[in-house]
Design a protein around this nucleic acid. Structure first.
Lengths: 204, 204
DNA sequence: GTCTATACACCGATAGAC
DNA sequence: GTCTATCGGTGTATAGAC
């Protein structure tokens, strides 16, 4: 019986090629900007001709969509290890989580734009990919809930605050830390608003 | 002596054409997305052939740059009339100013992206255009100073907070008001952090 | 200042051979 | 699954006539 192992090996090979293509796509997006991404350039980097990409992705937007899902999945995968390191003190925990997201978003402009902005005209994530982003948001809701923050406005205000710091960092001081330095202060301000107990102060 | 009047009429005509081109460019950007802007489409709308645009703008980026400057200038022009309507109570004043910026930014995605995000790979505003944005920021600094808010972090935290609400609004509820409704609450939170006196509460 | 003509490169996508 | 060939179109930008 070799049918099953063969099929497995083939699907694995297929997924490896998909990953390779996406990896090249990320390289291009980082180097030349998300909006300048082209099938030609991706194909060149993986040693293919452009039409061959259509054996793995139905369209250019399908590549964007896979990248979108991959980006949110990468962040989602950080959460278990984040949970293991989470400080018990609520404010310290919120700061830890905020810093994790900030650094993730500040590390890669193309990724950040794809995840949270409408940079690519006409691109909308598929339900499948969007569901991963929703999972991440769900984790945030649970975290806030665990700390007794049940204000209905709390998650939206949190995402606006942390996302706003990231966006300002990218727009006005890329590569620097002018807004990153305000992160702990911003979280303390937020924690005060939400009635979270505990002392103010920067993380060590 | 007709030399001077003629020259004036000619430069006026020239500027009118420039305005017409930019107006068409804004239409295209709004309808099809900022990144999809093409000289072809702009030219068609003003009834020209694409190469004719080069009599008025040195390049496509020069058009982006003029749009950038125009957008910030439009906002700057709102400030005198905003100042006339400014509530005397500090918190109400901050809310009023924040709402003005929010609504301006939420009214036009392409404009917002050009003003505050790095949507167009390779585009950087000229010093002249950027100076207008700096003028707007200067007005914010003066406003905060007038209310006794002299914390060095105050302006950066303010732009992150208000900008963050705008970005979330565009990313997750375009055309809605899910984050707009949090504006007064966010400003109260900010005012508390900055030690601004006065009562909390939504604007009427 | 606007036009035609054109350069020169690029794009996403499809058809069909192998 | 990858290729070649090709479609029909896009793009910015320049030269030179009028």
């Amino acid at each position: 019986m070799v049918a099953v192992p063969n099929r497995d090996r083939q699907t694995e090979r297929r997924e490896a090629t998909r990953r390779e293509i996406l990896h090249a796509a990320w390289d291009v997006a980082r180097e030349q900007g998300l909006a300048t991404l082209t099938l030609r350039e991706i194909a060149t980097r993986v040693g293919m001709r452009p039409p061959s990409l259509y054996s793995h992705f139905a369209s250019k937007n399908a590549i964007y969509d896979a990248m979108y899902g991959q980006a949110w999945q990468t962040y989602l995968d950080l959460i278990p290890q984040q949970r293991a390191q989470l400080p018990s003190e609520p404010r310290a925990a919120l700061k830890f989580v905020a810093r994790l997201f900030f650094d993730f978003a500040a590390a890669d402009l193309a990724r950040h734009q794809l995840m949270t902005q409408r940079t690519i005209p006409g691109f909308t994530p598929s339900h499948e990919s969007y569901a991963i982003a929703v999972e991440v948001l769900d984790e945030l809701h649970q975290l806030l809930d665990r700390f007794g923050i049940r204000d209905p406005a709390a998650p939206d205000l949190y995402t606006a605050l942390v996302g706003g710091l990231v966006d300002q960092q990218w727009a006005n001081d890329p590569g620097g830390d002018r807004w990153r330095r305000l992160l702990d202060r911003a979280i303390d301000m937020y924690a005060d608003e939400m009635g979270l107990p505990g002392p103010r102060g920067d993380t060590p």
